[in-house]
């Protein structure tokens, strides 16, 4: 697995965990009837911090664990190819395009909640849900491009 693939896998794992955490917290809030703006925006803050810190920590762990496994298997030191060449850039751009498409669909879906007479809080909750989902879909898309080629 290349340096870039490890980073994408780390991001994918982080955002999947964040999505699960987000859905659990929102459902808990709804059940406890504490689904209000203060709690929801607090959750936004927690998710933003988790996304940054989680991605960094999981990336570091993935590279260290990958290095140890490589050393045990081949008895050679790991060579870190942290340069981003033209193929990585194209894959990044394709992933970003998918993320933008998904985010746009998410914004449209969020606005639809108004059409169905839902309060603004539901719109905000839907918006962040699609934001996280867009990142996950983008990561899966990029990993697929690395594996299958294009």
């Amino acid at each position: 697995m290349s340096f870039q693939e490890k980073n994408i896998s780390a991001s994918l794992s982080t955002f999947t965990l964040i999505l699960v955490f987000y859905l659990i917290r929102v459902s808990q809030m709804v059940q406890a009837e504490s689904f209000n703006s203060a709690n929801l925006f607090r959750l936004w803050g927690i998710i933003a911090v988790l996304a940054v810190v989680g991605t960094i920590l999981i990336s570091i762990f993935a590279h260290i664990a990958g290095g140890i496994v490589h050393k045990i298997r081949t008895n050679e030191d790991t060579q870190i190819e942290d340069i981003q060449d033209e193929r990585d850039q194209i894959i990044d751009l394709k992933g970003t395009r998918v993320a933008h498409t998904f985010s746009s669909l998410g914004v449209a879906a969020s606005m639809l909640t108004f059409v169905f007479g839902q309060p603004p809080l539901v719109m905000f909750a839907t918006l962040i849900f699609f934001g996280i989902l867009a990142q996950i879909v983008s990561d899966i898309w990029r990993l697929n491009l690395y594996r299958k080629g294009f």
């Binding site: 340096f3 870039q4 190819e81 340069i83 060449d85 033209e86 193929r87 990585d88 080629g149 294009f150």
Partner: peptide
């Protein structure tokens, strides 16, 4: 040529077509 080994592998397996410059 200034790329990663992964890119060379992808090209040899016909999974990536390089830019004209590369």
């Amino acid at each position: 040529v200034g790329v990663t080994r992964q890119t060379i592998i992808a090209m040899e397996q016909d999974k990536y077509s390089p830019s004209l410059e590369l």
